[in-house]
């Protein structure tokens, strides 16, 4: 009789195929977690969901004041507003999701201890949450950059879609890799904030890096060109500001996105059974 019923062995791990099937089956769970996170974060505020647009608006205002007015990086060029905001909002998406994977795992330790599901659902949900936040920030972007310099959506905006997909895959891979480091070694979390800040200044967010580095050694310039964010931000500026498209931006973004997402997913699946021990 007992042999007639199927056996589930809970101490053995699923294969990669079964894992991905189960992950896909849980996609609505990831979506609900992300939407729940978005709602929960502003549920106690009066302005509610409007904050998702006000936040980047204020952030953009601060950076414009410091770098556009006080430091006057581009000498009063009205096109600078679009340049700065596009870089800033896109980089903010990466910065928030970078730590998001690890944070969501510690925040949901109770869920991990009691429910059985592919743990990758949690980092995926946090990247989706960041993606929704980033999409919200496009509204203030076009309002400011459009009125300041006429950077309104046009045919070039279609490039936004591939740029967004590459960027999101890249962020997911990064978030999965950082989570694997941060969960066993919490100390790394303390460094991450500083690392992301340095990374932002080393990326063409506030200024076009090649201009700043005209007198720098050739080797340094080449290393900085290797920065994945340089390629991804290049695509965004084609999409949002109509900059001429460069081949490097395309293959650089695609390679980084696919490479990091695969690496992150494969290594995360290998370590996720250890998670309950680190989180207990």
């Amino acid at each position: 009789m007992a042999n007639a019923s199927p056996v589930l062995s809970l101490s053995r791990r699923d294969g990669l195929g079964a894992y991905l099937v189960e992950l896909w089956r849980r996609r609505h769970f990831a979506w609900h977690l992300a939407i729940g996170g978005i709602r929960a974060r502003t549920s106690s505020t009066t302005l509610g969901l409007l904050w998702w647009m006000l936040d980047p608006l204020i952030l953009g205002g601060v950076f414009l004041l410091v770098f556009g007015v006080i430091l006057d990086v581009r000498r009063g060029d009205p096109a600078y507003i679009g340049f700065l905001l596009s870089g800033l909002f896109a980089f903010t998406y990466t910065r928030t999701t970078m730590m998001g994977g690890g944070n969501t795992l510690t925040a949901n330790a109770h869920l991990i201890a009691t429910q059985r599901f592919p743990r990758m659902v949690l980092p995926v949900a946090s990247v989706v949450e960041g993606a929704v936040a980033f999409s919200f920030s496009l509204v203030p972007f076009f309002l400011i950059a459009g009125f300041a310099h006429g950077d309104w959506p046009g045919p070039h905006t279609l490039v936004f879609l591939p740029a967004f997909v590459f960027h999101t895959l890249f962020n997911l891979g990064l978030s999965l890799l950082v989570a694997q480091l941060v969960i066993p070694f919490r100390d790394i979390g303390n460094v991450m904030g500083h690392l992301s800040r340095i990374w932002m200044y080393m990326s063409p967010v506030i200024y076009p890096l090649d201009e700043r580095l005209r007198n720098a050694p050739e080797a340094l310039v080449q290393i900085l060109q290797f920065n994945p964010m340089a390629a991804i931000l290049g695509l965004y500026r084609t999409a949002l500001l109509g900059y001429p498209s460069e081949a490097y931006h395309w293959w650089g973004s695609a390679a980084w996105a696919v490479g990091l997402a695969l690496l992150g997913a494969v290594t995360f699946r290998r370590m996720e059974h250890k998670l309950p021990r680190y989180l207990a």
Partner: peptide
């Protein structure tokens, strides 16, 4: 429950 893999030993669940 299958949420904490044991160091050694195994768990088998009969059912669907």
């Amino acid at each position: 429950a299958g949420t904490l893999p044991p160091d050694t030993g195994e768990v088998e669940v009969y059912g669907t």
